[in-house]
Amino acid sequence: MPLKRSHYFHLQGSGPIPEGWDGIRVGSETCSRLLPTRQDIRRISEEKNAARLSLVTPVAGPDEVGDVLNVILTSAGLRWGEVVVNDWGILDAAGGLEGIQITAGRLLMRFRRGPGVFDPWDELDLFSRRYLAWGPLYDSPLLALLKRKGVSRIELDPPRHWLPLPVQEGFRYSLHGDTRLIAVSAACPWLYDAEKGSWNPMTTCGCLCAPQNDLRMTSSVFEGTLLLRDRAVIERIEVDINELDLPDTVDRIIGHRIS
């Protein structure tokens, strides 16, 4: 019998929510400009009437960390399931806050997923395969540190070759079901001013970085297609969750696409 899993749709921008999703994620793993305000969160919570709401937060610069923490703090009383953290400073500050469940995001975990990493798969021994598939989940001191910071859930970036998840006591998992994260750009491509030859940090970008605005990246030296979404390079993937041998601890699936 298939396991009951919650499906979380990542709402970026103001797009519609497809049928069949029972949780909503707001915010961004990679861009602090996509951080919602408390009012946004309240509105989305009421309008969408979602069963659960997650706030996703990115790596924060010195001038951004306060905003991220403010949204976390001032929204603590609202109905939601978790705060997804991708920055050790945010984790350190929010990890002990009462009433907030903390999830370690896939950027905090730093899975290795780039093209080329998995090329010699057939030549690798089991240990090396584990390293590439789920390496951080075999880093016990790291996991112990996460636990001490109040983390009880980890987001999984899907590997190119699936291996059974290691059993780690005390953690549950959310699996990104349709994207693999490859890299995050140091300077936002959307803020580049081609005329001036500079990146304007004061530009209002309009936060158009929703999935429907993804740009396709293709290359003669790479067989697949990558996508550019806000500052992130991602790979869209097709995974049949029911085909995977997922343990009970993987009880949430995260989706990003519109259709």
């Binding site: 790596v59 899975f111 995050v184």
Partner: peptide, 29 residues
């Protein structure tokens, strides 16, 4: 061009152009 701690492109040979420098073609959907 990427945040090094958040980049998983592999750089396995100093003689090759690395994936971040490949000639990527961009197109909208």
């Amino acid at each position: 061009p990427h945040i090094e701690g958040l980049c998983t492109f592999i750089h396995d040979s100093p003689d090759r152009r690395w994936p971040c420098e490949w000639p990527w073609d961009l197109a909208d959907q």
